[in-house]
């Protein structure tokens, strides 16, 4: 197992509130890692470390080491943050397409990063939509507004949008929580397909989902990483009693 992401002793404060406490983890590449835990446990904050989304919030203080491909992502120059964000894609809780056409939504990441070659863009849009299992459904209406798609389709469009800039890592923050069961199943299927090329981190509230899609699972509680292990170990033989209480539904 090759670790793609490594954190060592990461603390994160919002003003005086400590949201992450001494978190150390090694996340293997080309796998799906689920982050579970009750609301406010820090799992979303943890997810947002890796594309430096936490930087956008005022009064955030981060210490410890965070490495992607053995490079510390908090010691890079600020001009390299855009590059980092291209390498680390993100999918959000609610589908959030831009007020543009389906095509332009996917092309967005390419255009803002200076690519103007329309042939290249068209190819990349097609490939991304195919990878996101959406191409067949939208190939005849690429010029239509993205808002005309259903919720599940919108979410797959957002995944395609993230794939278009060819990231290595995809962060997913409860990507199916706003969707119906059928759309959820499609997204889970898609995650399964994507892991042969991408390292995927997924925050989820849904324990069955974590068990279904992930190879590894980390359990967070009050900002601490309580336990991190292969998913089947976590769900069949948790080492920590808190983990056990959580997955058997005793709290959260």
């Amino acid at each position: 197992m090759v670790p793609k992401i490594i954190t060592r002793n990461v603390d994160l404060y919002y003003s005086s509130f400590q949201a992450l406490k001494n978190v150390s983890i090694e996340i293997p590449e080309k796998s799906v890692t689920a982050l579970i835990g009750p609301s406010g446990c820090g799992k979303s904050t943890f997810l947002r470390l890796f594309n430096r989304m936490n930087d956008l919030i005022d009064k955030v203080k981060i210490s410890g080491e965070i490495l992607i491909d053995d490079r510390s992502i908090y010691k890079i120059r600020s001009s390299e943050i855009d590059n980092l964000r291209r390498k680390v894609g993100m999918v959000f809780q609610k589908p959030n397409p831009f007020p543009k056409s389906i095509f332009e939504n996917v092309a967005y990441g390419l255009r803002v990063n200076g690519i103007n070659d329309s042939q290249l863009i068209a190819n990349q849009v097609e490939r991304s939509l195919k990878n996101a299992a959406l191409w067949e459904e939208v190939k005849d209406k690429l010029k239509k507004s993205a808002f005309e798609l259903s919720g599940g389709q919108q979410q797959r469009l957002c995944i395609a949008r993230a794939l278009a800039v060819e990231p290595d890592i995809i962060l997913m923050d409860e990507p199916a929580s706003a969707l119906d069961p059928i759309s959820t199943a499609k997204i889970e299927e898609l995650i399964f397909d994507l892991k042969k090329d991408y390292t995927i981190l997924i925050v989820t509230h849904n324990m069955q989902q974590a068990a279904r899609v992930s190879d590894y699972t980390g359990f967070f509680l009050n900002g601490e990483l309580i336990e991190f292990n292969e998913t089947k170990m976590i769900f069949t033989n948790p080492k920590n009693s808190k983990t056990e209480s959580y997955i058997t539904g005793r709290f959260g």
Partner: peptide, 29 residues
């Protein structure tokens, strides 16, 4: 405008200004 729309744009490597001009203003049109 929901904040995750902003974040989605930034997460793709867009600058804040690009986000404003290409996403937020059309959104608020």
């Amino acid at each position: 405008i929901p904040s995750d729309v902003r974040q989605a744009s930034l997460a793709l490597g867009a600058s804040q200004w690009q986000t404003i001009v290409r996403v937020l203003i059309p959104y608020a049109a």
